[in-house]
Design a binder for these strands. Structure first.
Lengths: 150, 150
DNA sequence: CCCTATTACGTGTATATACAATTAATATCA
DNA sequence: TGATATTAATTGTATATACACGTAATAGGG
């Protein structure tokens, strides 16, 4: 499972750039699959988990749907529908914003904070387990990824 | 748009490992969005494009649905339904396999090869444009990604 | 040869992505 | 002020992911 070539049964790539695109797509799938395995018992998708963490980061200050959208990892996602799902599970509250009735104030509930808390034990070692790199290598990779996107 | 922190409005991360997970998820979204912009005029999704390239790599030798599945970047994808979509567009053919009637032989059509050929001009510069790194950095990153997955 | 296990493929359902369109509220400015 | 533009959020539709299940064909062992 180590090399990319083996994992997707491809003998060689046109050039290193081509391999890197494929490598990033494949590694993403590897990561999300691992994340899913942890989140599944909690009945959360990775994106729902992401939204909950954004809300927790507000420390009690309400935020809007569009603000959540801006902070999401996938800008093409749909915060409105994700908020709906999380509200159905009572992990967040929606309140009409008094100063601008187009907006909706979103707040994480106690139940939402609790589920994040329960997850923390499982997430604690996740990052270092799923990423088989030294801290130095991780820092190099972060810098390269930031540069990659220009 | 450079730094991850700015892109997702997050001040800091718990540790470099945590940042790397988020960085990979965010960079994936950046890549796929760029890929989509090229593929959209050709009415192909990134996964459909991936399946077509796998078929072209066969050089005329038929392959099966499960073999396509094995080579896909996302192992949890559904090759059966993707093959259906591509057949509807007449970009591939399905033939009952004579030696094993459970299997289906899949072959890319002339039309499928033509669409890949038309795409090549647009994909030519894509990799180097979307990846703002030197070739040395790209090679380092490929090695780190291969190591990351263990 | 038959029974059982396995394999290949397809289907069903829930969730999410991608993108266009709609609606309601607010902002802008002649 | 009143017409127009902009913004916030929702909705609709097509595609894809994640995973369970179903069916038909083949393999393998008694």
């Amino acid at each position: 499972m180590g090399s990319l070539e083996e994992a997707i049964k491809q003998k060689e790539f046109k050039d290193p750039y081509n391999k890197l695109v494929v490598n990033l797509l494949y590694t993403h799938s590897y990561l999300v699959t691992a994340q899913n395995n942890i989140l599944k018992p909690f009945d959360l998708s990775p994106e729902q988990y992401n939204v909950l963490r954004i809300l927790r980061g507000q420390n009690g200050v309400p935020t809007t749907v569009s603000s959540i959208q801006d902070r999401m990892l996938n800008k093409m996602s749909n915060a409105s529908r994700l908020v709906d799902k999380l509200k159905a599970k009572e992990l967040l509250e929606r309140r009409e914003c008094p100063s601008d009735r187009r907006q909706v104030d979103i707040l994480i509930t106690e139940k939402g904070l609790q589920i994040l808390n329960d997850l923390q034990v499982h997430m604690e070692g996740f990052n270092t387990q799923v990423i088989n790199l030294s801290e130095e290598e991780v820092i190099i990779m972060n810098d390269l990824l930031d540069k990659l996107r220009g």
